[in-house]
Design a protein around this nucleic acid. Structure first.
Lengths: 225, 225
DNA sequence: ACCTGAACACCGTTCAAGT
DNA sequence: ACCTGAACACCGTTCAAGT
């Protein structure tokens, strides 16, 4: 250690902002945001926590950086048939990227402190540009962006909150269903049954359902100022 | 201290789970979630941090408790004209409650670890019951609940993320606009102009706009299974 | 220029000891 | 039964010291 070599004698790859961020993304993917500490990131890189401060200002910059990495996975240039198809495909690619990194929605939606993320700007610009090119007024394009962006980020976070954690025991759901008193909640019980039935024969995703409601609505309101 | 009296000699109100939660809500309202530490909550109550553990299992129970307090502010029994009006009013009351406690969306949407909140069950049940009473199939009611609930929580969190923090300097927005290079983002610049124009003559809220898109969509899909 | 040991001011939580 | 002092195992971060 401190000799430029790792314990096994191999030459150590020099630390860099990029290596820190890529490592942090991988760690968050497997262990969640809580597993990211300056010490644990350093350890993963074979380095002490304090070395990280030579490449990033503070932990907040790492969190902003990995959020931006996920945002840069959004497909902002889908085959640009009509605006509706293009927007739909773009939103779906964003949804998939967010699901690949389940910790990222929270970071993008509730950044502390707020930061301007370059990949986020490019994504928003692409949505606005598509609406404007399709003839939407500036105000209509703005509302369209709000609706699409909030659905992509908000619905995905909502969806993830209803997922079972990866480390949940296999009988977790059954136990909750058995231990919860549903006598005052008949429709909640029915709702659970719907979910069980759906998981056997998966149909149109819920994300797409909401997305299509928005797209239909935007199409209908497109002309009316 | 430790004598059952506060420093000024007045008799101290005994600690209780309720007092802890109500105090924590007030603290989060003024200082945000980050201002909630076991020590700071204890201090606010004139007690040491360790005393809290006589009334709650851990900090997670406090966070779940204050989230449930906010959820219990949702109006689940609005005047029940038709389903669409009732759902709309109920969603708007939920939106307002979440805005009163800007820290709460995050807690409800991304709970760590996930917990079953009683007030959340009551709220979901009320949505489902209303859809079913209006003739929605179980599957359609489930999808309706997903769309409404994810919009209420997801959009509000999204909206709050675009709000300026209360402690932002008055020229914050101007400085960001001046320092950011918009040359590659013409439509983002136009979007900012739309926002400026809108803040002068406020119109229909963005939350209601998305809500109405969903309600219209649900109405249209109501019959189709 | 980059990395580190030691230290600081915090966290949540436990537990034996007090009343 | 309820509260507390002291302690433990953590955090993020700073800084002088090393190479």
């Amino acid at each position: 250690m401190g000799t430029g070599q790792t314990a096994d004698g191999s030459v150590r790859t020099p630390l860099s902002r990029d290596r820190i961020l890529v490592t942090a993304v991988a760690m968050a993917d497997t262990g969640g945001l809580d597993s990211l500490t300056m010490r644990s990131i350093g350890h993963e890189l074979g380095v002490e926590a304090m070395s990280l401060y030579n490449h990033v200002r503070d932990k907040g910059e790492i969190l902003a950086g990995i959020a931006d990495l996920v945002l840069s996975e959004f497909d902002i240039r889908p085959p640009a048939r009509d605006w509706r198809t293009a927007t739909r495909e773009s939103a779906i690619s964003a949804h998939e990227a967010l699901l690949r990194h389940p910790w990222s929605c929270e970071l993008i939606l509730a950044p502390r402190p707020p930061r301007i993320l370059p990949a986020r700007m490019r994504w928003i610009e692409s949505i606005l540009a598509r609406f404007r090119a399709a003839g939407f007024s500036p105000a209509a394009a703005s509302r369209g962006y709000h609706a699409i962006d909030s659905h992509v980020l908000g619905f995905t976070l909502w969806e993830l909150g209803h997922r079972l954690p990866d480390d949940a025991p296999p009988d977790f759901l059954e136990r909750v269903m058995r231990e919860t008193d549903f006598s005052a909640f008949p429709y909640l019980l029915e709702h659970a049954a719907v979910h069980r039935a759906m998981s056997e024969e998966p149909e149109l995703g819920e994300f797409e359902f909401g997305l299509d409601l928005i797209l239909e609505g935007l199409d209908r309101h497109r002309t009316s100022q």
